[in-house]
Design a protein around this nucleic acid. Structure first.
Lengths: 240, 240
DNA sequence: CTCTGAAGGATTGTTCAACAATCCGTCAAT
DNA sequence: ATTGACGGATTGTTGAACAATCCTTCAGAG
């Protein structure tokens, strides 16, 4: 192992170390609290109460609010406070429109690279995270760990987006999925919802591995159309 | 004019009025300052100096910094301060990867809608902003208003992205273009750069209007490939 | 009864001052 | 040339204070 290897590894860890900011940690706490569903959409987050509960000053807390506001998890209304984002049916449609563009686009871009000279080894290597996510979901379903099925499903789509090999696409997909979690909590049985798509994930993976890239892209498109319709139905029955 | 019309107009202006936040206005000032090139990439923004110059407190200024940081115009280094973002060649590649996915994806999504039953009137109506941007650029070029040619070019791509009719796609495109402005300033003659693509804009518009949507999408792809290569060349000659 | 308008309290927006933590450059010592 | 310590400067964070705004309540007019 040469010196440059050491330095490279250290540089990879640098982003993890920079997380020392108090506001950033507060944002992390609130983010998981929100995406896990403990804070229902519409809940008002009082600066004083939460600041006291977490032991941070109002100024620091406001910085955390800004962070989550830009991730669209919180809605900041001037002179009124911040609220857990409440998504409308139009928001769901918009999110899936963006998903179609991002995920199908990522598949398409990966396909173009593969056609433009890409070794077979490099291709399977690129698909490893996708395969991992698929198997993670199947294993979780076999053990009836429904919440893990849900997170595995997220991992699958995140991995697909990562096929574009674009940090910005990956980050946008991360924010998109976090926002979508707000939607999933309004469903009666989110477990069954995610589980139903496990075979689809497997099918798309196999299409990708086989190099059937156009088929993979259209499979993803119909996948997303179906999921969107199902979610919108749940919304029609529920709130909004 | 009915009552609902009145209310609709007022609601449209609401976003403009909500800009009463001091931090938001400070962010606006800094944003234009940065995108116009007055603050070169790498410049450090001292909290004390800028706070004194703009007459706002450090806390408010920090909120503005967070806003611009999330738009990637500023880079926030912990315990070191904020700097005007300095983009690397990899950033340029990433930005164009995202542009390909977003802009080509928007065209493709619009195409799918058009095929799935869309009146001809509705289609030309949808293309109005694109046509306006193209003509705005041509008019500016005819009068040798080079900076206006550049902004018209931005408007064109923003309008293309808006074909997806997705607020989130539109916003992402806006942030992307703002970030790209950081890149354009490193070129010797950004005017000529933008002017060269005016015929391409016109060609894509005509393909869209004629319903040649696949051709429009691939034309946009080659367009972006060429622009990316040109920018990367300029970067190789210049900094980083 | 409904609508209007005026207190009143509560919460947010913003500023200020202070201290701790960290970074950066300098300089001496090995 | 590298190391280590010192000191100034800047950021991170806190707490308190005041102004501005919102929400609720309530009384009065039509």
């Amino acid at each position: 192992m040469t010196t440059s290897d050491w330095l490279e590894e250290l540089q990879a860890e640098r982003t993890g170390l920079g997380r020392a900011s108090t506001a950033g940690r507060v944002a992390d706490v609130l983010r998981t609290r929100i995406t896990e569903g403990h804070l229902p959409p519409g809940t008002r987050l009082s600066e004083e109460d939460i600041g006291a509960a977490l032991g941070v000053s109002r100024n620091t807390l406001r910085e955390a609010f800004r962070l989550l506001g830009h991730e669209r998890l919180l809605l900041h209304e001037f002179n009124r406070g911040v609220f857990v984002r409440k998504l409308t049916v139009d928001d769901v449609r918009d999110l899936y429109q963006l998903r179609r563009i991002l995920e199908c686009g990522a598949v398409r871009r990966a396909a173009e690279r593969r056609r433009a000279g890409f070794s077979a080894d490099r291709w399977v290597e690129l698909l490893v995270p996708v395969r991992d996510a698929v198997e993670e979901g199947e294993a979780a379903a076999a053990r009836d760990r429904w919440v893990e099925v849900g997170t595995a499903n997220m991992h699958f789509h995140q991995a697909v987006a990562a096929l574009a090999q674009s940090p910005r696409v990956t980050e946008a997909m991360g924010h998109l999925l976090a926002e979508l979690r707000l939607v999933f909590h309004v469903m009666d049985a989110p477990q069954a919802f995610h589980q139903a798509y496990l075979p689809e994930n497997r099918a798309i993976l196999e299409l990708l591995a086989a190099g059937e890239l156009d088929a993979a892209e259209s499979a993803m498109a119909t996948y997303l159309d179906a999921a969107e319709a199902q979610l919108i139905d749940a919304y029609a029955a529920g709130p909004a």
